[in-house]
Design a protein around this nucleic acid. Structure first.
Lengths: 349, 349
DNA sequence: TTGAAAGCGATACCAT
DNA sequence: ATGGTATCGCTTTCAA
């Protein structure tokens, strides 16, 4: 491996001091334009690049941020990362990325590495059920700014960027009710999952508001909310029971995908026999047949916002650095019972 | 911002030398177990973390790799990144990530930053039509190891990890022919796209092998191969023409998705009226109705392999560090014309 | 078993 | 306008 070209190499080649070279390259004022020109040329010729490690060490400025996500091959999260990078690169920050794989110990291990690497700040979407205290504590102790994304799990006043999950679920459920569905089932995740619970809560609120009974048998919980397979099995459970629902709201588009399969097998037409609403507006949702009504999750925007907040926090702005993105429903055909049916319901019921 | 705890802080607190502290923390042999114990306790108490910048600078060991991808919110690439991270973290490398957004200048700018940050190696999927020479040249000049992923565009002997695109397309086309389709159209990308061309080539090879005529009117090119919209329009073009194809092979699953929509609009049943095969085995492919036959692209494996090669290259192993993953077709319903129809073809034709 | 001092590659202060 | 020197936090000889 050839040694990296350093300031000294340039200095020796031109018989000037290292200091002078540094001055030239850093555009200082107290340098002879002539000397400067020669130095710049030499630097170019030798293809000099400043060693960022040395610079950072000396200036005590480590312009790197760390990003920790539960999983990266997931549309929403990759989208968040994209948003973060958009902004970070513009502000001349480098981005270190780590994947916790939903494991708390790995999350903490990555955090350790990031801290060793003197990250200026961290953006993290904590793992479900993680001992957040242990994960975030090292950051707090060192006053390293951090922003949580999507799964605020720390103290109430830790900054976060999230989405109004509850409202999204409320809108989804309300929409189904609005379109004439009355027996609405919910397919959700495990009870320890914040997000799942928030969406459950939104569902309940809507049911209450419109005086529809909350039937626990209509609420099914799966372990992994990212597997269509789970949605399929849970949908079968609820659809094969005596009193079957006329609509299903799933807390992810993946789960909804499984519901489509179950519906098809059971010869239920969507949306006439079974209305479906998903959550996330992932790419799949547009491609299902019929297209899936779903709740929008603006990952890229959230990532950008997270970085903006982080930067605020870095420069010491202590104002409120949390934001909850408003919910928005994207209505497609999976929930639009045809007019005829709606009318017949109206006249008969 | 509170100052970071350093070796000196520990040394001063215990009245020992910095050297001794360093020895204790680095598990050296020449240290009194007693002293060591006390030092470790103190380090723990003060929550000491080594400054990786100082360590790296001193040891001239910068265990960081850089990854540059055209776009991150794309299932295949996020999957590649996942594979890279799996391996990298196990080997105690940090991963810097950059997104070129298909822009050559941005690609080069990220590369510059990575070089400044003394990355030990780079894994890059170059941008379509990028001036690869300019992008990779700075790496070459500094003998920084790199591995190209998916779009080998440099010199013939630059290491890469790719997929046998041509064979994948060949298998896809052959499969369609095998299932009784005869007039097979191709929906591809722009002519400057290597990947698109490789797939075109595989398509042509299969057509030739089975003595089917190559009809240029059956080959449609779109600008963006990641938009279903494009697939939709191109499919309409080819399906509304006088002599319409009985099958369409698209070089991405996204394009295929658009074909589904067009087929539905034109009341063509899949696969009986129109066979479809996609490419990538993205999540969408399982969820389409009927499920899409597609060519597998093992992103995660490729990412892992890329990292392994990079590490080989880093430790100076000069053996062949390129690999082409073999093609594998995943057969689903979109290409399986029903037996009855096949038989009628057999008896009549 | 411990400590003093040099040095990694850069910057910044103080001289000249 | 230029150069010498200390320094960032750590590792690594070399002496003691």
């Amino acid at each position: 491996m050839p040694k990296r070209v350093g300031l000294r190499d340039i200095a020796e080649a031109l018989n000037v001091s290292i200091t002078t070279v540094s001055r030239a390259l850093n555009d200082k004022f107290d340098i002879n334009p002539e000397t400067k020109k020669v130095i710049l040329e030499k630097a170019e010729e030798l293809n000099y690049r400043p060693n960022a490690f040395a610079v950072s060490l000396r200036k005590n400025e480590y312009n790197t941020i760390g990003v920790i996500l539960p999983t990266i091959d997931h549309y929403f999260f990759s989208t968040v990362l994209k948003g973060i990078m958009n902004k970070a690169h513009n502000s001349n920050y480098l981005v270190l990325i780590g994947e916790s794989g939903h494991q708390t110990d790995k999350e903490q291990q990555i955090m350790d590495q990031f801290i060793n690497h003197c990250v200026t700040g961290v953006i993290i979407s904590t793992t479900v059920g993680s001992e957040v205290k242990d994960t975030l504590e090292p950051l707090r102790r060192r006053r390293i700014p951090f922003i949580q994304v999507d799964r605020p799990a720390g103290d109430k006043d830790d900054p976060y960027v999230r989405y109004d999950d509850e409202k999204g679920a409320f809108l989804a459920t309300e929409h189904l009710i609005d379109r004439g569905f009355k027996k609405i089932a919910l397919i959700k995740g495990p009870d320890i999952c914040n997000i799942s619970n928030a969406r459950l809560s939104g569902y309940q609120l809507a049911m209450e508001k419109y005086n529809l009974p909350f039937d626990p048998r209509f609420v099914k919980s799966g372990n992994n909310i990212d597997f269509a397979e789970n949605g399929y099995h849970l949908a079968r459970q609820v659809l094969l029971a005596k009193n079957r629902p006329d609509a299903i709201f799933t807390i992810t588009d993946e789960l909804a995908t499984g519901v489509y399969r179950a519906a098809k097998e059971l010869n239920l037409r969507i949306p006439d026999d079974l209305g479906i609403v998903g959550y996330s507006n992932s790419k799949i949702s547009t491609h299902l047949s019929p297209p899936l009504t779903t709740v929008e999750q603006p990952g890229e925007e959230m990532g950008e916002q997270a970085f903006d907040f982080l930067q605020q926090s870095i420069i010491g702005n202590a104002s409120d650095l949390s934001k909850t993105f408003d919910a928005r429903l994207i209505i497609r055909d999976s929930s639009l019972k045809s007019i005829q049916i709606l009318n017949s319901i109206a006249t008969n019921g």
